[in-house]
């Protein structure tokens, strides 16, 4: 087996063959999930705790379902409502939970690096479900799986990532993953939503949708993260939609069989046209949700196997 990590904190730490291993396993889980009985036993007897310090519906549900389908005991903790508001520090919370002997800890936090910090303090496997603007590894993996299934490969594709790249952990994880798999990546955004030093990531940078989308195989739209903005990145949503929102006219610059992706939740009429998002011939947005469960099952399965190895040795 070529996946030896204890935690899944970011795509940055993974090698290309590890990504392939994970996606191959996820493919098997897609089959399982589409069957009549959806029960696996990979996580039987294990305890999975979902700690979400930031609101989430879809990611949390996806992780919960993934854990349950593999037989784990899953507990959800909405951290905003709990001890954090009583002044307990992140590390104290982690230590407290650690004492309850969880096996898998799924963490989302509004600060970049918070999940890394927490992972240093616990002796179970930690999965990053999104930390600040840093990484969202399972999202990039599910996007990778979606592309691989739609396009038949995950290399030598022209992929455009469009929109609020500055505030997006999805964009960072995807840039790293798609780069490791040797794709050509284009970033399209107004300069105010482009992170500094981005040229050094080995990507092509555009501020014009028509030029950037020319002949691409995949169009990844990002959500405009209004909650992370401290004001004034774009003049207005209507101007943003006019210049950077994906509609049929802009998509016409891409290859005729280009697929449209979005990590959700969508702001219809802001970054993507509602009709296009629902177009089953172009949009793979619903497939992304389906792949999400499978990828998370695969990730937790692999980490649980490594956990068994570590604990067996001890």
């Amino acid at each position: 087996m070529t996946f030896t990590h204890r935690h899944l904190l970011g795509i940055e730490h993974l090698r290309a063959e590890e990504i392939v291993t994970l996606l191959d396993l996820a493919d098997e889980y897609v089959t399982l999930n589409r069957g009549a009985s959806k029960h696996g036993t990979a996580l039987a007897g294990l305890t999975q705790i979902n700690m979400f310090f930031e609101n989430s519906t879809r990611t949390q549900a996806s992780f919960e379902l993934a854990g349950k389908r593999l037989g784990a005991d899953v507990m959800n903790m909405a951290m905003q409502a709990s001890s954090i508001s009583k002044g307990e520090t992140l590390i104290d919370t982690a230590m407290t939970l650690n004492a309850m002997h969880p096996d898998l800890l799924v963490v989302r936090h509004p600060h970049s690096g918070a999940v890394d910090l927490l992972a240093q303090k616990v002796n179970c496997a930690v999965l990053n479900a999104g930390d600040g603007r840093h990484e969202h590894p399972t999202q990039a993996l599910l996007d990778g799986l979606t592309i691989r299934r739609a396009k038949g490969r995950l290399h030598r594709l022209n992929i455009a990532i469009c929109g609020d790249i500055a505030h997006s952990r999805v964009a960072r994880s995807n840039i790293i993953l798609l780069g490791k798999m040797e794709n050509r990546i284009r970033l399209i955004a107004p300069p105010t939503l482009m992170p500094s030093g981005i040229e050094e990531f080995g990507v092509e940078v555009y501020d014009d949708m028509a030029k950037g989308l020319q002949d691409v195989d995949v169009v990844m739209m990002l959500r405009l993260q209004r909650e992370r903005m401290d004001g004034g990145f774009i003049p207005s949503e209507r101007e943003y939609y006019h210049r950077f929102g994906l509609d049929a006219a802009k998509l016409a610059h891409a290859k005729p069989d280009a697929i449209v992706m979005h990590p959700g939740p969508m702001n219809r009429g802001v970054e993507i046209d509602g009709t296009l998002a629902d177009d089953i011939n172009r949009s793979v947005i619903q497939d992304q949700v389906e792949m999400g469960v499978a990828v998370r099952m695969a990730a937790m399965d692999l980490l649980a196997r490594n956990l068994a190895t570590v604990r067996g040795a001890a």
Binding site: S112, S196, G197
Partner: peptide, 20 residues
């Protein structure tokens, strides 16, 4: 305001709010 790092590739990679 709000910056924790100097802007550039490293800050962007780490997802930290940065200042030029």
């Amino acid at each position: 305001q709000g910056a924790a790092a100097t802007s550039g590739k490293f800050a962007s990679l780490r997802g930290l709010p940065a200042v030029s």
